[in-house]
Amino acid sequence: MFEGLGLGARLERTPWSPENSWVAWLFAFLFSITTPVGIAIGLGVRKTFELNSPRALITNGVFDSISAGILIYTSLVELMGGEFLHSDEFAHSSLKTVLGAYAWMALGAFLMALLGAWA
């Protein structure tokens, strides 16, 4: 859910030229069909998938690491960099406000990591 909200906010804030406005609609459409396509693939291979086979464990590890890398890149570079470095809100804010926002973001990241380790 949070990835969808973050991506939607970025798509909405990106200044698209009139001749390239279709790209935002394409990105939103592709993002919205990734989960149903993934579910369809999962349903298609559920009979042949052996949960503890070496191939399944390697595949799961590779896809988990790719997903984690994409999420780390997106959070650090795209979302956090865009909000803290290129935002009009923070450009004219005091250092206390920026550090407070950073502290809240770090607390949220810590709680999500704690939840991930617990789950």
Rank of each mutant, 00 (worst) to 15 (best):
A28E: 02
W104F: 15
G8S: 13
L79K: 01
A103N: 08
T14V: 08
A109H: 12
E78V: 15
L114A: 14
I39S: 05
E3P: 00
Y73Q: 04
G81R: 05
E3A: 06
S65K: 07
E3C: 01
A24T: 05
F2E: 01
E89Y: 14
P15N: 07
A106C: 12
E78L: 15
L76M: 11
M1I: 05
I66A: 13
T97R: 15
F31M: 09
L95S: 13
I72W: 11
M105V: 11
L43H: 08
L43Y: 10
A117H: 10
A106S: 14
L85G: 05
L107G: 10
S17W: 05
Y102A: 15
A28P: 01
L114K: 09
N60D: 08
W104A: 15
L95G: 04
A91Q: 11
G6K: 00
L111V: 11
G8C: 04
G8R: 02
W25Q: 13
V37G: 04
L26C: 13
E78P: 00
L5N: 03
F29T: 09
S21G: 08
V77E: 09
L51C: 03
F84H: 04
S21T: 07
K47N: 11
L95E: 12
L7D: 07
R13P: 00
P36T: 07
G81P: 04
S94L: 08
M105I: 06
A101F: 09
W25D: 12
V37I: 15
S93K: 06
W22C: 08
N52C: 02
E12I: 06
F84N: 01
N20W: 09
A103I: 12
T34R: 14
S94M: 05
A91P: 01
V23F: 15
M105R: 13
G100W: 10
T59C: 11
V98Y: 08
T35N: 10
P18Y: 05
S21K: 13
A109W: 13
T59R: 05
E12P: 00
E78M: 11
L115D: 04
I41E: 06
S17C: 07
F29N: 03
G81M: 07
W118P: 00
V62I: 14
L107H: 04
P54R: 06
F2T: 00
S21Q: 14
K96D: 08
L5P: 00
R46G: 00
L111Y: 05
R10P: 00
G82M: 04
R13Y: 06
W25I: 07
R13G: 12
L5Q: 04
E50P: 00
T35V: 14
L57K: 14
L85R: 13
A109R: 09
